[in-house]
């Protein structure tokens, strides 16, 4: 599978990831090399093999639905880029 520079732009948009136009060619080359390397996986027949999500096939534990966290809003917001009145500020979303 080969990826061209237009595809790099589309994937970067999906990931909301800024990639300079001038770097698109380079990323296209890297991504194509990685994907063609990964194509070795097609050499093995995996029909009937269950995908493995956890090495010990463990499942998620359940816990009682109880509040265990304390309110630490001020500490958490102290490390945010911009906050005001307890709210995280971002550029205007609704015109």
């Amino acid at each position: 599978m080969s990826v061209d520079k237009e595809a790099v732009g589309r994937i970067a948009h999906l990931a909301r990831l800024g990639v300079e136009e001038t770097e698109h060619d380079n990323y296209a080359r890297n991504l194509s090399a990685i994907l063609s390397f990964v194509e070795q996986l097609d050499s093995v027949d995996t029909s009937g093999v269950a995908p493995m999500a956890h090495p010990l096939d463990a499942s998620q534990r359940l816990r009682p639905d109880e509040v265990t966290e304390t309110d630490r809003r001020e500490q958490f917001q102290a490390i945010a880029p911009r906050v005001e009145a307890g709210l995280y500020l971002v550029p205007k979303v609704i015109e």
Partner: peptide
Amino acid sequence: GEGFGAEVKRRILIGTY
């Protein structure tokens, strides 16, 4: 785009794809 370096970007792109 400004916060991540090249290898992290490559992996995000591969994973997103």
